[in-house]
Design a protein around this nucleic acid. Structure first.
Lengths: 334, 334
DNA sequence: GATTATTGTCGAAACGTTTCGACACTGAAA
DNA sequence: TTTCAGTGTCGAAACGTTTCGACAATAATC
């Protein structure tokens, strides 16, 4: 029923170990026996079995993908796009991707099963993840790549977004459109990426000699959703801050700002302009459509897989960071 | 370094096989030894290794997901949504999902690696797939579930869309809006689902004593994209077919029709109404937004996993079919 | 008290690979 | 001729589990 390496050996008239040698192109095998073995393999339709091979080589042929639960169940397909990017790329590296999610409050009890079962050769982590999981992975000696997150301490390989340049593009774009009074609405300041966006805003405004007062920056909310954007916008408008443009830290926030402006009967983009960040579905479905910064999500996933594969093979060194560029997409909101 | 079942046995002062028994809750183990074993496991942080277990049980703990290459690379995230649905559901069944794509012209050479390596316990196939791959799976004795496809012959388990009812909802909706002269634009008639939509259109119009002449149905294109919709719409308009509403077999076709109508300076929905099918991104991003039939894509993926898990466990019988309902979403195009 | 079931435990054999050291050749160097 | 390096092949051990039959020890039946 089940054709094994033993049968191949018997058919070819050689030892099991010899078959293994030609299978793995290791050691020296004569032209002639190689022929015999290959013929037997062909004839019997033999293919080595993953679990048997994995048992001895300690390689599973799988990569793990870890995402925090709220990122996965989040309606915005930001991280799922990244995940699909890894799936696509993994195929050309002969890996399969195992997806799991973890709670933000991570405990010993909830270690991803693929780690416990030693069922992955490396791990990709997307978005904010608890530091404990990183220790967990390090303990097991697995290489890993972070995406869109970099923890306060430690030397990790990561795929990062060029947040500063994105904000620069947005601000420059607004300045070109004649805006001088900008405000910034940020998100979860725990997230280093979000902080980068906020800091870049401050810095770039200063570079252009524009007012970058603290009161023009609202970035202390814990979440980064439409609701926070809505409230922050109202805060600015109610306090009479002089402004003609909002720079939002992401598209969800921007859509909240949009709603607030509509409630206040402000015309967009005539009265106020708004820019988002990420270029997710929201940006296109919003009315008016959002000018935003396109982040190449699938590509980031693909890059992560490529880097991870190199780390596993030992052809890249841990700590490599790749920063992907973003691209301004002008739409109706500016 | 690597903690094995043997160490657990030693620490607990029992035989290896006994540890295995408590691990798998098989056979009878006394309360007392169970305690000892569990304590040892806890103390050593032991967890059985997947590949070792898989080698003997012949179970991998993985499900395969097969998609045709063009469906995956297709911009429309119809099938990727389904895939994400399987990922989500798989987690609660303790399975991981391995994704692969196959070419439509399938050969012996390109059998998915996870089949060759015996690395999956069951397979999900989404969309049109070559019949040969189905044989391939059957040969290996693996249970499988089809999604949104049913081959001409054979008795398969499948998750299907209630296409007839969807078209019924669309037509009824249009009739309520006062339309009497409807035409249908179909897609790839190789696909059974597409044929169902076309046949349903014909039948339901007849039920309402409306003109369901063959000349009101355009369904012989090979593809099912915007371009085909565009051309079909022009065909109807140029030939002076009397019509006030288009029923499209999917959203891509509908968006093509939309464009044709715009080119002809027809107002939507005043001059002509249009309905789509599937409710993918196109439907929301189109201008005007598309009235369409919402298909619960993630849910279909989840249902497939649930059914496949039951098939593997032997608690469902092969040949089970599940038809999921669709829901009309009225938007600007009608 | 002898027989038979039942219960709990165990040792050993499998599962299908890879890898390592041994070994017999061959031909070249001493 | 003896020694040595290199080549090709092999047998056996290992990888970490599960499972099966054997076997005491205990409990139930006659």
């Amino acid at each position: 029923m089940n054709v094994t390496i033993r049968e191949v050996a018997r058919t070819a008239g050689v030892a099991v170990s010899t078959v293994s040698l030609v299978l793995n192109r290791k050691g020296r095998v004569s032209r002639e026996t190689e022929r015999k073995v290959l013929d037997a393999i062909e004839k019997l339709h033999y293919h080595p079995q993953r679990s048997a091979r994995g048992l001895v080589t300690r390689h599973s042929g799988n990569l793990g993908f870890i995402l925090s639960t709220d990122h996965f169940s989040n309606a915005e397909p930001f991280y799922t796009k990244i995940f699909l990017g890894t799936e696509f790329e993994a195929r050309s590296h002969d890996y399969y991707v195992l997806l799991t999610t973890i709670e933000q409050q991570f405990s010993e009890k909830s270690i991803p099963r693929f780690l416990l079962e030693k069922n992955v050769d490396g791990v990709i982590l997307a978005g904010t993840v608890p530091p404990k999981i990183l220790e967990c992975i390090k303990e097991r000696g697995l290489p890993c790549v972070l995406i869109d997150y970099f923890p306060p301490a430690g030397n990790y390989s990561a795929i990062l977004i060029d947040n500063a340049d994105g904000i620069r593009q947005a601000v420059t774009h607004l300045i070109e459109k004649g805006h001088r009074d900008l405000v910034f609405v940020g998100g979860d300041s725990q997230h280093p990426g979000m902080r980068e966006r906020r800091d870049a805003f401050r810095r770039i405004l200063a570079e252009h000699d524009l007012d970058a007062d603290e009161r023009r920056i609202c970035a202390d909310s814990l979440a980064s959703g439409a609701q926070e954007g809505y409230e922050a916008a109202l805060h600015f408008l109610n306090n009479g801050v002089k402004l003609t443009a909002f720079v939002a830290a992401n598209d969800a926030i921007a859509s909240g700002i949009l709603r607030a402006c509509r409630d206040r009967k402000l015309r967009i983009p005539e009265d106020v302009a708004i820019t988002g960040f990420d270029d997710v579905e929201t940006a296109i479905t919003a009315r008016p459509t959002l000018t935003t910064l396109h982040v190449p999500k699938e590509e980031m996933g693909a890059l992560a897989v490529r880097l991870l594969a190199q780390l596993i093979a030992g052809s890249a060194s841990a700590g490599t960071k790749i920063v992907v560029p973003v691209q301004l997409v002008p739409r109706e909101s500016t």
